[in-house]
Computed example of a mutant assay.
Amino acid sequence: MAGRTSRSGRAEGTRETILTVAERMFAEHGVFAVSNELRQAMPAETGDSADVRDWVACLVRPDTDHLAELGSPTWFARFATQVMTDPVLREIMIDETFGPTIQQTLDGLNRCLPDLPLPVRIERGEMARHLLMHMLAERERALAGNTQATASTWPEYASGLIDAITGIWLAPVTPSTSHGRS
């Protein structure tokens, strides 16, 4: 019981620290201080592309470019990943980041996948978001710890992420009544 109480106290202390840092970051930079010019320019340049990879790049490259601009070490991706696990902070983060440019990008992606059933689309969107956030945090951790990173630069890393997330979107759909798929 003492171990559980101690762990609970540490968890509460960690939560308070996260909330304090979150409040400061929200005030100073917004949740995602990603270049709005880049985030807005990419969908416009992508136009009416029917290539899923082009639209996935619109979601990935602004984040990786931002992290590259910050230099190393950074904590932003690791912090954002932790914030997304808190139900209240997650809603704030989603509200802060979801705007017309993200909607335009998602609309472009959806146009490329007209036959993908809505439940599968929602599920894969969650998978893609988790993969993106966690892998950005992992690269950030590796760079901060001077451990072997899988790619030598953020742009190379972005290309690998774009490939993987594109694979998620283009994977075959296995019919299953448990997921409401048809």
Rank of each mutant, 00 (worst) to 15 (best):
S178L: 11
T147L: 06
G9D: 10
M133W: 10
R124N: 12
A128N: 01
A77Q: 00
L109K: 02
L132N: 06
V88Y: 04
A137H: 03
E91L: 15
L118H: 04
D107I: 14
L161T: 12
R139I: 01
Q40I: 05
T46Q: 00
W169R: 08
V60E: 00
A41N: 03
I92K: 15
D63T: 14
R4L: 13
S159N: 13
G47T: 09
L161N: 11
A77V: 01
L116N: 12
A41P: 01
A11Y: 06
V52N: 05
P155A: 10
T46A: 03
A11V: 05
S8A: 10
F76K: 08
R53K: 14
G180T: 13
T46N: 04
D54N: 15
P172S: 06
E96R: 05
I94V: 15
V52Y: 06
S159D: 15
M42H: 06
L59D: 01
V120T: 08
R90E: 03
P114Y: 02
E96M: 10
V173N: 04
M1S: 14
P119T: 10
L70R: 03
G71Y: 00
T147S: 02
Q40N: 04
I168H: 07
P43M: 01
Q148C: 14
L118V: 12
W169F: 15
D86W: 00
H179T: 12
M25Y: 09
R124I: 08
L19I: 02
D48P: 03
L70K: 02
L161Q: 11
I94E: 05
Y157D: 13
C112K: 00
L143Y: 05
R121F: 09
G167A: 04
H66W: 09
A33M: 08
R139L: 08
V31E: 07
E23P: 04
E138A: 13
A77T: 00
P175H: 12
S182R: 13
A2S: 01
V83Q: 03
G3T: 08
G47E: 08
I122W: 04
P172H: 05
F32V: 14
C58M: 01
E123Y: 15
G9M: 09
W169N: 05
M42I: 08
V56F: 04
P117T: 13
